[in-house]
Nucleic acid binder design. Sequence first.
DNA 1: ACTCAGCTTGACGTTAACGTCAACGTTAAA
DNA 2: TTTAACGTTGACGTTAACGTCAAGCTGAGT
Lengths: 173, 173
Amino acid sequence: MTANPTALKKAQNEQSWGIQDFADLFEVTPRAIRFYEDKGLLTPSRESGSRVFGLEEHGRLTRILRAKRLGFTLDDIKVVMDVTYGLITDRVELTQRRDNFEKVIASLKRRRKDIDILAREMGELCSIIDDHLEKTADDSNVSSLAEAYDEVFREHFSHEMLDDPLFTNSKRS
Amino acid sequence: MTANPTALKKAQNEQSWGIQDFADLFEVTPRAIRFYEDKGLLTPSRESGSRVFGLEEHGRLTRILRAKRLGFTLDDIKVVMDVTYGLITDRVELTQRRDNFEKVIASLKRRRKDIDILAREMGELCSIIDDHLEKTADDSNVSSLAEAYDEVFREHFSHEMLDDPLFTNSKRS
DNA sequence: ACTCAGCTTGACGTTAACGTCAACGTTAAA
DNA sequence: TTTAACGTTGACGTTAACGTCAAGCTGAGT
């Protein structure tokens, strides 16, 4: 046996894509992908000039797009990726970023509440619309939509105000 | 009793704010608030030229900012608000928008999964950082961070790939 | 009468995340 | 060899959501 312990699986048989296929895979444009590379978020290998994307880059782009969907900027994402891929060695910097990450995690949990509330509100809105569409199945415009909305959101409103610390601030002249 | 059935509570004693106080209340700038008004998302009353914001506008801005936090554009928000406040009367338009709202609700639920995954990943990242900071409490840089990350994300990776429909698409020449 | 705080309406500047060209190189098939 | 498909690097354009002035009104206090 020729000496080849812990052989790197960097072999040929790993999946890989050209930029167009890779872009199609995630429903983004090649331009966007090049842009992410410029920002240092992707580092595809090259074959005679052309970019070649493998599983590693697939994983990265998956995470990039997930974070983007949640409203993070590419700079935000880079702050995380640089740590993830070991580009940050300074202990102080590392500690600061970890603290930041914990704040992000906290804000993510708040975001979940936002989602719950918005999803519920939009569900109610759909119901109200359905009611309205049913009542006025012919073409008489008897019931004003505004009334129904008003009821629902008034109720809402008091809910929100109760646990809203803002509400003890300032009044007006 | 003077005739006054179902009296409107449009009275004086409702809370109200000037633009600066109102902005402070939500930690945004007066400019942003004027911008939202230009876009038709807020319609404060006026007192000798100056804007006056009441409970109604408070509720609206609450919802505007919540939607913004979730990545919706102001135009997106207006599409919902216009329905909510009865500005859309056309049945066809109304039906289309309701269908759209249901898609939004569905995508909100997908967003929750994004949050769960990202929060978990960032939690793991924090743990890894802590481990690293502990091991190298002096200043010897024995363990490479990259190794630890690699393990965690490789695992991840296979998880994701399993339920990823994308993964049966295209290969490469 | 003057000043000042707080508001108003333009109007132009800025940033992020690409879109959209133009001009050019490379490989494989006809 | 020519063409076609696919890639490359600039470089400039675009949109959303404001920021940042400038110039002017307005009502309360001195």
